[in-house]
Design a protein around this nucleic acid. Sequence first.
DNA 1: GGCCGCGGATGACATTTGTCAGAGGGCCCC
DNA 2: GGGGCCCTCTGACAAATGTCATCCGCGGCC
Lengths: 203, 203
Amino acid sequence: MSPVRVLLADDEHLIRGALAALLALEDDLLVVAEAASGPEALAMARAHRPDVAVLDLQMPGADGVSVATSLRAELPGCRTMIVTSHGRPGHLKRALAAGVRAFAPKTVSAQRLAELIRTVHAGGRYVDPELAADAISAGDSPLTVREAEVLELAGDGAPIAEIAERASLSQGTVRNYLSSAATKLGAENRHTAVRLARERGWV
Amino acid sequence: MSPVRVLLADDEHLIRGALAALLALEDDLLVVAEAASGPEALAMARAHRPDVAVLDLQMPGADGVSVATSLRAELPGCRTMIVTSHGRPGHLKRALAAGVRAFAPKTVSAQRLAELIRTVHAGGRYVDPELAADAISAGDSPLTVREAEVLELAGDGAPIAEIAERASLSQGTVRNYLSSAATKLGAENRHTAVRLARERGWV
DNA sequence: GGCCGCGGATGACATTTGTCAGAGGGCCCC
DNA sequence: GGGGCCCTCTGACAAATGTCATCCGCGGCC
């Protein structure tokens, strides 16, 4: 049986290299390409057509989920999985929606990762139980589209005026959205609201 | 010549394990202990007395810099180095002040890391050139002790009243500190001020 | 058609925050 | 002793923000 062809994408050279070395020890796995950014991961995937793509969630250029979305369209035969340091419930949700087959934190062992790659290649799925529990308990976002939009623009602490301009809304409207978003999230003001929404992966 | 005894501390099992495997390939390096948190790193160091401690900056319990500080006091013979994903200028400064001998981003290769460990063991020092440049251009914190303190309490978006209470200050004083801090940082409001100070590693 | 509910928008009003001037006390250094 | 810097506080005013009542348009439903 021919080995599983794997693409590794992670911007941290140290980790990517170490991972490649470890996976190389497995007879049935073959790392055929490595990438340090989202776009590079796409290019490498096109060139090497891997069976499984192991993607870091945070990468320069394009994050793991958007890479997975593109891959799904371009290389339907290529299964994708996400590995990440900071798993937020919303990320998991977005990832699954993008057709990602597995979602694991970087706290898993290399042994386990190898197993996951085999599982995914065989058509299976896997989601870290703890992340899954978080995602379920966090539930769906109670925010409307506009609320989330405005909340995102408020993310870097910009004043209302700037948010209003960037969203092409009146300042009053922006304030209402922020207010209702904060109420829904149980926050005292928009800044804590932003933080909470981020923690739950809703922005 | 006996090998360099190395302690690896990183909360991401995947990376720690992979790293250990890679370093094991070097004849002159010996990973004698691994830890997944700050306190565990300290305990392992006490038990195994490594020559060099490779510490992740972000760990549960206690971050790399505080571990380095404790190690310096308890095991003066143990050299410390920090490896991190997100290098902020202020972290570098704090690390050097704590007696850390090397500071590198996780984008370095394992080969390079092995070299660094040897350099540090031999008494040398190393700072990633890019991080060093950032640190120099960022300069010293213009904030007074209290300003930084209040700014930190403002970190999670709490209202002034709460900050004042937690800092045991009058609300007016808090507002003044936040205002002057924001002015010094060139921010429009305290929230962007917090963000900027965080980026520069001043809080 | 008429009615209801809902997301979206607006303006008015109250509260919070930012800014400024000033003032007293403590500390260090010349 | 004097000067300078920081800490703390106060009071007052301007600006930003939060809250609320209300209105509009749209789709579903009786």
